[in-house]
Write a protein that binds this DNA or RNA. Structure first.
Lengths: 104, 104
DNA sequence: ATTGTATATCGAGGTTTCTCGATAAAGCAA
DNA sequence: TTGCTTTATCGAGAAACCTCGATATACAAT
């Protein structure tokens, strides 16, 4: 867990918002995954396009934000066909919360 | 509590270190406050010079770091004579930890 | 094969951050 | 007053971040 990298990733309004939305994906992305058949359904994951539409930034910006958050460990992803689904990595978030609470 | 501002302030190795040191000031700044008489002693506060000596950065850098952390709410300060004593603002840290644990 | 869609990467311009030395301000000591 | 110490602020150059459009890649559909 690279704390600095994590705090940097969290230091941006839009990235923070994305992370927040992904806490309740079915709530914030109601029409999500119209593409995927249920059996392949990536639990809690939302594709880049749906996120982009909501966050109001260019496609490349959103793609880079998501990649950055994944590098920091905040998100994880899988690719299915042409879509990449991102969801939160709760383990990292838990660890960070514990670090803030106990060590910092 | 401005979350973005807080995360930015935490996104720097040296600032994070200072915050950490100030958790146990008597441990990390043993010869602290030789200047002050006990009755004026600012509990847990450490002066800029002592912090600068330990963090290894220029005087102006350290002064700016401390001011920035104070603006974000991570630190608080009082001035006594020519010294400014900085200590942690535990309330903000508590709130941030709670935010990370519950809301984020 | 060609076209279309979703995502990633590249290159670049503008903005912010990092960090410093120089200078200012504030207060103590002679 | 003059000088000394401590901290804050200013100005600036280098590095990092933000954000975009253009292009590349990967795969599906026709």
């Amino acid at each position: 867990m690279n704390t600095i990298e994590l705090f940097k990733a969290l230091s941006n309004e839009k990235r923070l918002q994305i992370l927040h939305w992904l806490k309740e994906p079915e709530k914030h992305f109601p029409k999500q995954q119209a593409h995927l058949p249920k059996e392949v359904h990536y639990k809690g994951g939302v594709c880049v396009g749906d996120i982009q539409e909501k966050v109001q930034a260019s496609q490349s910006t959103v793609s880079q934000y998501l990649a950055m958050m994944q590098r920091a460990g905040l998100l994880e992803s899988i690719r299915h066909n042409q879509w990449t689904y991102y969801r939160r990595n709760e383990e990292t978030l838990q660890k960070l919360a514990a670090y803030l609470d106990k060590e910092l």
